[in-house]
Computed example of a mutant assay.
Amino acid sequence: MKFILITTAILALGCSKNKPITDKPEVIMEQQKNVDPIYQFKVKDITGSDFNLADLKGKKVLIVNTASKCGLTPQFEELEKLYQQYKDQNFVIIGFPTNDFMSQDPGTNEEIAEFCKLNYGVTFPMMSKIEVKGDAMEPLYQYLTQKSKNGLGDFVVEWNFQKFLINEEGKLANVIGPKVSPTDSEITNWIEGK
């Protein structure tokens, strides 16, 4: 039974449910002209304090759902490397722990924060644990995954470490699959405006 579950999970990771963004920038701008930016949302950071996304105006943002006990958990190291490389260039990463995928982040916020710091030296902002799918999906993730709210497309959070790229206007620019490295050129070129 365990073998079947593991095989199913691996197959699920290999099959992307999200279509790549192929529209030209001017088409995307037109689709999103009447869409509110992410600045409308307030979330809780990993210590339980308010974190106002309006404070990120003018920055490029990578939003990622994370897990401490996942095969992709080593991406924390790459995320931190990316953050250190670009944090002084109007770029920030925000991590949202979730236990939504095979219970791979069962710890408390305090345990998750300690794990991230001790094992990967994470300094980018980590938020309180949330749900990124289902009926209790965090409102920010409803925005990120529903075309009626983001103007770009309908997306599924496929697994831990899916990346949502937010432009300087606070609007969704792209969705990058969980298995894509945070330091992949698709992401670094976007940060650098190439």
Rank of each mutant, 00 (worst) to 15 (best):
K171A: 09
G177A: 13
I166K: 00
K163F: 00
D100G: 04
D105T: 11
M127S: 08
S148A: 09
S148N: 09
D135G: 09
V122N: 01
P106S: 13
G107W: 10
T145R: 00
N150W: 01
L172I: 12
Y120I: 03
K117Q: 14
P125H: 13
M137F: 07
Y120S: 02
V157G: 04
A173W: 05
T108P: 06
G151I: 04
K147N: 11
P178C: 12
I130M: 12
A136K: 15
V175Q: 04
G134I: 09
Q104N: 12
A173H: 07
K147R: 13
F101M: 02
I130C: 12
L152M: 14
D135M: 11
L152Q: 15
V156N: 10
V132S: 07
P97N: 09
E114I: 07
F101V: 00
D154S: 07
K149Q: 12
M126A: 11
G153Q: 03
N174V: 04
Y143K: 01
F101E: 00
M137S: 12
L118S: 14
F124P: 02
P125N: 14
N160Y: 02
Y120R: 04
I176R: 01
A173Y: 06
L118A: 13
F164S: 05
P139N: 01
G151P: 04
G170D: 10
L152W: 15
E131W: 12
K133M: 05
N99R: 05
L172H: 10
D135C: 06
Y141N: 06
G177D: 14
I176Y: 03
G134S: 07
K117I: 12
T145P: 03
T108Y: 05
G153A: 01
Y141W: 11
P106D: 15
G121K: 10
S148E: 12
N150V: 00
K171W: 12
G107L: 08
L152E: 14
L144R: 06
C116I: 02
L118P: 08
F164R: 01
D135F: 08
G177N: 15
Y120W: 06
S128D: 09
L152V: 13
G153V: 02
P97T: 08
F124S: 03
Q142W: 06
L140Y: 03
K149A: 10
T123W: 07
N109Q: 08
N174T: 08
K129S: 03
S103Y: 14
